[in-house]
């Protein structure tokens, strides 16, 4: 049991982080806090990808002659996650821009106040 928890600690961390982020996205009232939650959520997934690319005792995947036998980590998830990071940054940028516009229009970034303002 202990082995199960400790042996896969990286995955547990990813799950915990993901849940924290997810909770913030759903439950927070402040729009910026939601975005922070979103970032945590996405970063957790990046960690997950890095974890799956890792090989025990592996080294950086730089190959030259005579090094064929050396174990190195899988580089594909790293590449994938670079793309995902770009996506995450863009998402953050867009949502923050929207939040700025919301602040201009409503004078607040608290969700309940905005909903109140919308009902009037």
């Amino acid at each position: 049991m202990i082995e199960f928890i400790l042996g896969k600690y990286n995955y547990w961390i990813y799950i915990i982080l993901m849940m924290i982020g997810f909770y913030a996205m759903i439950a927070k009232n402040n729009l910026v806090k939601k975005i922070i939650g979103m970032n945590i959520f996405q970063t957790a997934v990046f960690l997950f990808y890095i974890s799956i690319g890792d090989v025990k005792g592996g080294t950086a995947p730089i190959v030259w002659e005579g090094m064929e036998k050396v174990i190195y980590v899988n580089p594909v998830p790293h590449v994938l996650i670079l793309t995902a990071i770009v996506v995450a940054v863009s998402t953050t940028a867009v949502t923050l821009a929207v939040v700025i516009r919301i602040y201009e229009e409503f004078g607040t970034i608290e969700e309940d106040r905005i909903l109140e303002a919308l009902e009037d």
């Binding site: 939601k34 959520f41 997934v45 929207v98 919301i102």
Partner: peptide, 27 residues
């Protein structure tokens, strides 16, 4: 209208959750 901003924000939050789920599944 200013409702559009709120709609867009909510769309973005849910959309990101969805996309991240898909990303996890791919992983």
């Amino acid at each position: 209208k200013r409702n559009a901003l709120v709609a867009s924000y909510n769309y973005a939050i849910l959309g990101t959750i969805s996309a991240t789920f898909i990303l996890i599944a791919i992983g």
